[in-house]
Write a protein that binds this DNA or RNA. Structure first.
Lengths: 312, 312
DNA sequence: ATGAAAGCGCTAACAT
DNA sequence: ATGTTAGCGCTTTCAT
């Protein structure tokens, strides 16, 4: 018997040596079958190409490896139906599931959660109070960005919105509503925009046409696109308009000017997700939800407001 | 019996219905054990955070899914020893292995390949003539970039080198050597630099100090860092110095000026890798090696050479 | 056409 | 302390 029974020392040693020689090792498959555990978990993501999932995957896989677990990946290609099928099917080949920002509807998700458990949710919450959730606190972070702008004296802002349906956008809107409630003298214009550099670039006219002195872009890409267009229109950032992004992508700090933004701790998100899963796997009950606070990176794309905005 | 035996129609239908009702489905684990195949492959990468591996993973996982295969990931964290252990261990839990740009030494790799097969290599070649290799043709692509610069009249260039040991850097040096052989009137100064924005930024002095009219950066990040520093030194790109990058990262086309670079088809790389694996899995013999040509993106960071370089 | 039995490679519980 | 056996959940082969 291999491992920790009560066997003769010498014999055990000889067996181990022989195993080494023939380079034999127990079939993980057969072990899994009899033990009822595969030492593998799966993570389902909507799009493997999205950088924010890389971070999560990275943090998760490293943490899992330290506990001797392997990780499978499943890419739902942004399809809610595919996502459901994939989740169920993948779940059967492993011991647990991590669902990253699932795209399926609330009702469907809640119903599915029971069948899938153990399962942990990343960047998406559910009714289920038994399912652990780990998420980035977009709402608080955007609030801090708004506060920063306000601290510089900005009272009239534009928000360049992302995908209207998305949870990410909804959270930001909540933060704006909170902010407006707290500061009745402030004004934020919600402008449909998008999530890419090109979207930000094209929003330039609208921004310049408004009386705003500050812009909150949905993310860094949008902010960069906007800044690029602004510089072509000879609008100085931050002298005439301050701009903030969101995500802190690698190039954000190297832009001219370096971009003020919120850095989402994606790798930590993944590590925390594993922690929850590990608890679940060991019969422990993890905290229900944990919100990770993005870090505000205050850089040179923001500065004191000039009265009257661009026109002045 | 489930599937395609010769059974009574009605009975089969009833069984299927019952299975549906109880939402029963065969345990993939037990099936795997008896069939001797897991319908899973694993891909080993040196660093899950590296964007170029995301593309490969993405293309690979989508292609594999279409053939009913799952994919596991293993992150060796850039450690050659870890890589070896991981590869062997992971291989036992699945039907095949894809090694992405393995960091281990040639000799070790060649020896290991036999134990791991079926295995396909991405962006790294080996002695083994039986192991399929799919790679990006860095050498040809850099040659084309050099030709482009030459076409603009540049005769004196600087190459900002990446990690000295890396295969990626070696391929580029080969291309430079070829180019120099073909064009004895050209001159390329090899300068140690690095792979990041900051590395490129710091190379500015060296570049300005040289007589070069064109710069070949190891990658886009380096090129961007350099251009950023050049603009602070009021050196105009491409009027005074032309700069090319490599990779075509998402922001390359949006830089000011938009960056001339080579676009590596990473997703296709992944898809091709799966194709090879699929052949291997089905007893077919795939082509030994396939080289995917990056696409040259000629943009505004390159232009006609001015005699005398910066000084003029 | 259908049912029974063997066995994939292991581990755990039992008997020696 | 060591050897033996049952069985994890399937598929396949062989009888019926």
């Amino acid at each position: 018997m291999n491992g920790h029974s009560s066997v003769d020392r010498a014999l055990a040693e000889r067996v181990r040596a022989a195993a080494e020689e023939l380079n034999y090792s127990a079939s993980p498959l057969a072990r899994s079958l009899v033990l009822g555990k595969t030492n593998t978990i799966a993570v389902v993501v909507p799009d493997l190409e999205n950088p924010s999932f890389h971070g999560v995957l990275h943090g998760l896989s490293r943490a899992a490896k330290r506990n001797g677990y392997h990780v499978m990946i499943a890419d739902s290609e942004e399809s809610p139906v595919e996502e459901r099928i994939l989740a169920v099917e993948t779940r059967r080949r492993c011991d647990g599931l991590v669902l990253c920002a699932p795209r399926m509807a609330e009702a469907e998700l809640d119903q599915l959660l029971d069948e899938l458990k153990p399962v942990v949710l990343v960047n998406r919450d559910a009714q289920s109070t038994t399912t652990p959730v780990v998420a980035a606190d977009y709402r608080t972070a955007l609030g801090e960005l708004l506060d920063l702008l306000r601290g510089y004296g900005h009272r009239s802002l534009v928000y360049l919105a992302g995908a209207p349906e998305s949870v990410a956008n909804a959270r930001r809107l909540e933060a704006i509503r909170d902010f407006l409630d707290d500061h009745p003298d402030s004004f934020v214009e919600i402008t449909p925009c998008g999530v890419s550099f090109a979207d930000g670039y094209e929003a330039c006219e609208r921004v310049v046409g408004s009386a705003a002195t500050g812009v909150v872009a949905f993310n860094d890409l949008v902010a960069m696109g906007l800044i690029s267009a602004l510089s072509e229109h000879d609008v100085a950032v931050p002298e005439q308009i301050s701009v903030v992004g969101f995500d802190d992508i690698p190039l954000a700090r190297y832009m001219t000017p370096p971009l003020t933004t919120a850095s989402v701790p994606v790798t930590e998100l993944g590590a925390h997700a594993w922690r929850r899963m590990w608890d679940l796997l060991n019969g422990r009950v993890p905290d229900h939800a944990i919100l990770l606070r993005p870090r505000i990176q205050s850089r040179a794309s923001t500065g004191p407001a000039r009265l009257g905005g661009v026109q002045s």
